[in-house]
Write a protein that binds this DNA or RNA. Structure first.
Lengths: 143, 143
DNA sequence: TATTGTTATACTCTATAACTATA
DNA sequence: TATAGTTATAGAGTATAACAATA
């Protein structure tokens, strides 16, 4: 009788992600950061965002959640917020030199983490994995 | 100049896992559960554990965190805890009929979620993915 | 003393609802 | 009225430290 024979990929994915996320969390913490801070920094550096709403979308959190993190980051001297003269409703978020430095440190930690994770896997396998993960994610995306 | 050319797999993995985890969280919540409850139920059903310490390890949390969840599950009538007569330090955790029912409901939700996620992927690809993820996780595991 | 588990407490991340400022 | 963002509040998950019970 034909039955689905393969293992529940969701379980494997969840377990792997949990393990990887914890290891990465520790690496980020050791470098003076955290997951949300890293996500915000990398978004600021790589994605052109017009306002905080778009930044929140890029990071994958609600606007109020982003505000919460930006408050902490501003208090820590990592970012500045100033109103856009052209549209004073908009708050422009910019990295300070300290923010740039932390970005570099966290990027190093992320690269080291990546190299550790992919040890024993070929570039072809990594590309395959990335492709499969992307297709998986697409299946559970609403948009 | 030879440079690492492939994308940071950690980023792809983190993004995919976040998306998948959120979708799964919603599915579990709709079925009356949550991730930790599901992990505890599935561990109780599939892994023979001698005590809560082992159960906590299986779930991947600290003992106190497990106690926290078991308190809630016991209050909800999903599990019972009684002392082991042979070693009264040990608390035996057992599923109630309600716990069994919830396990079945969450299992259905997990299966549905899995089928949704793997749409468009062949069994071979899923097996490949599981293998790659397992190797990745192994690389960041301390043990 | 060592082991098993609980309680007390606190921290991080996230979210929703109500609010302020600006257009 | 609509849009951008903040504040207030709350809830879930996790952790560490101190404790109680048992061996």
């Amino acid at each position: 009788m034909p039955q689905p024979t393969t293992a529940p990929i969701g379980v494997v994915l969840a377990r792997t992600a949990k393990t990887a996320a914890r290891a990465f969390d520790h690496a980020l913490a050791a470098a003076g950061g955290s997951q949300p801070i890293w996500q915000i920094l990398i978004s600021l550096k790589t994605t052109p965002v017009a306002n905080q709403r778009e930044l929140a979308d890029a990071v994958g959190v609600q606007g109020a959640t982003l505000t919460h993190h930006l408050n902490g980051m501003e208090a820590a001297g990592l970012v500045t917020r100033r109103r856009d003269p052209a549209n004073r409703r908009v708050h422009l978020v910019e990295l300070t030199p300290e923010g740039e430095q932390l970005f570099l440190r966290l990027a190093s930690a992320a690269i080291a983490h990546d190299e550790r994770m992919r040890k024993g896997l070929t570039d072809t396998e990594i590309a395959q994995l990335a492709d499969l993960l992307t297709r998986l994610a697409h299946n559970v995306t609403d948009s």
